[in-house]
C-alpha cells in the first residue's frame, strides 16, 4: 500500500488532498498544527493517522515522517501544504518578525519535511514530493513575504527535482489560484467580486481541483514528470496585467 503524508490537512485544500489520496487507496498521515482539526480530519477518513504539530519546526516535521514509518511502514508521497497567507501589508510595514514567520511557515516547513522524508523515500527506491505554492509567487503587491516564500517553494522543488532524479524521487509544485476555502469566503463581498472578475473562468477553484493535480503528480505513473509547476488557477495567470484588476 502506498503511504502519503499531507501537512496542513485539517481543513481546506489539505483536507481535500488527503481525502482524494485515501479514496485512491493510499494510507495518509494527516498533519495539522490545530489538534482538533487534525483529529477531526483523520476521523472522517479511513486508513489515516493524525499527527498534531507545527512542521515549521524540525521536531514537528520529523514527527510526521516518523508516523508514516511507524504506522504504515514507510513513505511514498509527501505533500507539503501547510502554510498561511498575509496580504494587504505594504513592504515598509512588514516587520522582521512578520517576514521570518511567513518564510518559516510557508517555505522552511517544506524544507524540514523534505529533509526527513528523502532518506525514507530513498530506502523505498523512489517517491513523490509535491510542494503547494501559490499564484502569488508570480508577484503580489502587499504580499511580499508570502510571494517570496511561495516562489521559494517553486525553486525548492526544481532543485530537488535535479538532485533527486537519480534516486527515482520526483518533486513538483502545484500552484493554486483563488480556491473556495473558508478563508476566501470570509473576504469582504465587494473585494471577492473584484477578485472573481480577474478569473477568466468566472469562478473560483474547488479544493478538489488542487487535490486532483496533486494526485496526478503523486501517481506512480508520473515518474518522468519532475521539476514542473502545475497551475490550478482557472487561467488567471494567463491574463495580461492590463486586464487584471
Amino acid at each position: 500500500m502506498r503511504v502519503a503524508a499531507v501537512t496542513g490537512a485539517g481543513r481546506g485544500i489539505g483536507f481535500a488532498i488527503a481525502r482524494m489520496l485515501v479514496r485512491q487507496g493510499t494510507a495518509v498521515v494527516v498533519n495539522d498544527v490545530d489538534g482538533r482539526a487534525a483529529h477531526d480530519a483523520a476521523r472522517k477518513l479511513t486508513n489515516t493517522v493524525a499527527v498534531v504539530g507545527n512542521v515549521a519546526t524540525e521536531a514537528g516535521a520529523k514527527a510526521v515522517v516518523e508516523a508514516a514509518v511507524n504506522e504504515f511502514g514507510g513513505l511514498d508521497v509527501l505533500v507539503a501544504n501547510a502554510g498561511f497567507g498575509v496580504v494587504g501589508v505594504e513592504v515598509g510595514d512588514v516587520t522582521a518578525e512578520d517576514w521570518s514567520r511567513v518564510i518559516e511557515r510557508n517555505l522552511t516547513s517544506q524544507f524540514y519535511c523534505v529533509r526527513f522524508a528523502v532518506p525514507v523515500m530513498r530506502r523505498r527506491g523512489g517517491g513523490r514530493i509535491v510542494g503547494i505554492s501559490s499564484r502569488a509567487w508570480l508577484g503580489q503587491a502587499g504580499g511580499t513575504p508570502y510571494a517570496a516564500a511561495k516562489g521559494g517553494v517553486v525553486s525548492l522543488m526544481r532543485s530537488l527535482a535535479l538532485e533527486l532524479a537519480p534516486h527515482g524521487i520526483t518533486a513538483n509544485s502545484v500552484v493554486p489560484g483563488s480556491i473556495a476555502t473558508p478563508a476566501l469566503e470570509a473576504m469582504d463581498a465587494k473585494a471577492r467580486e473584484v477578485l472573481l472578475r480577474a478569473h477568466p473562468m468566472g469562478r473560483f477553484g474547488d479544493p478538489d481541483d488542487v487535490a486532483r493535480a496533486v494526485c496526478f503528480l503523486a501517481h506512480p505513473a508520473a515518474e518522468r514528470i519532475t521539476g514542473q509547476t502545475l497551475y490550478v488557477t482557472g487561467g488567471r495567470n494567463l491574463l495580461l496585467p492590463s486586464r487584471t484588476p
Partner: peptide, 8 residues
Amino acid sequence: LNGYVTGQ
C-alpha cells in the same frame, strides 16, 4: 472533472 487547469 478537471476543469480548472488551463493554459498549462
